[in-house]
Design a protein around this nucleic acid. Structure first.
Lengths: 197, 197
DNA sequence: CAATTTGATATACGGTTTGTATGTGAAATG
DNA sequence: CATTTCACATACAAACCGTATATCAAATTG
């Protein structure tokens, strides 16, 4: 064989992150045993602590990966809309839908903030927020939105969307609740418009 | 002496909850040792497990207490405003300010959801949300707000407010960020109005 | 190419924590 | 006053995290 060392190391990192995504989503961060998790990946805790420093480091890596995937997807969906304003609404709806995924919910929305602190200070720089903020900035520059602080507007919008998702997921009949949440989100977002519809 | 048993039991519960509020806020739920915490209250883990079942039970009791205090305060502040609409805005601003309190932030906003799950399913029934929802319901009945689902509107509003607070607290200069957040919140809330300002 | 070094991962260990099972003594009961 | 109850303390077992040490293959060097 004689495989290169950096290769196998990279593969092991991928294996660990994949196993962590699964276990963290299913059991939650606190209840996830690092012995089991590393065994699932065909490794031991030695590899884990060498690569990620501590349990939190693994969570940070997982959060970063999921957050990036979410941001990419939201951006794509937003870009597909007719104009920038429709794009912002579509982004919000996309976040709400994505947050119905158990991985997103448990890892990014619940355990992430509790263990790593406020998302705006995450090492990943929180790509999701960045996407929303740049969309808001563009709309403000075009005069479509009121001249608010972009960061503030983005934080509140994403906060509303992600909180809506938690509510939907916890509800008994998500399918019937979803449209209500999206409708309320649209109404709220319309409050940012410079000229009311 | 001959103190009544139910009395001392009640006092011990109060002591434990008070110690827990302090320790959970300072160290976070996960890092709080129940040995230390109960010793601070002049008791042992025996009292804790007898009264609250498990560590989570103590957190639930603490969350319930803080949540109730917040709801009372928000309601008072809202009632003091000129009309119901101003009351809603004042409630939102009140939540943002209250969430700057480390106890509220660490315990109710970060650890609470991660350990106990979505707030709407908390045993305490989440008094904060109830207050906001009834205010929204009243405004809808009066035709001041669009006929949206009250639960949805309340969830998104409080989500936006509480998320704003996390952002403010994590920022370097909270005093300068606060007004931006409140302004953005007002704008968002205005989107719920039946007749734009 | 052989000898040596490096470093990624496995193994071993100590300390801490949680939850339960059992013990105890004072209040409640009759 | 004898007995029972039960709130709390103590004792115990299991699990887990993080670190310190060991190992063995790949990388490096002369």
């Amino acid at each position: 064989m004689a495989r290169k060392r950096s290769e196998t190391m990279q593969e092991n990192r991928v294996k660990l992150i994949a196993a962590a995504r699964k276990t963290f989503a299913e059991k939650g961060y606190a209840a996830a045993s690092m012995d089991e998790l590393t065994a699932d990946a065909g490794l031991t805790r030695g590899a884990l602590y060498h690569n990620f420093g501590e349990k939190r480091g693994l969570l940070a890596a997982v959060v970063d990966q999921i957050d990036t995937e979410m941001a990419v997807r939201a951006q794509e969906i937003g870009a597909r809309a007719g104009d920038a304003w429709q794009g912002l609404l579509a982004e919000g709806a996309a976040y709400i839908e994505m947050a119905l995924n158990p991985e997103v919910q448990r890892i990014v929305l619940l355990d992430g903030p509790a263990v790593l602190g406020d998302p705006s200070q995450w090492p990943s720089q929180n790509n999701c927020l960045q996407v929303t903020r740049s969309t808001v900035e563009r709309l403000i520059a075009q005069g479509i939105l009121k001249p608010l602080d972009p960061e503030a507007a983005a934080r509140l919008l994403s906060g509303a969307a992600l909180n809506a998702a938690l509510w939907i997921a916890a509800s008994e009949d998500p399918e019937s609740v979803m449209p209500k949440a999206v409708e309320a989100f649209h109404a709220l977002a319309a409050g940012l418009l410079a000229e009311p519809l």
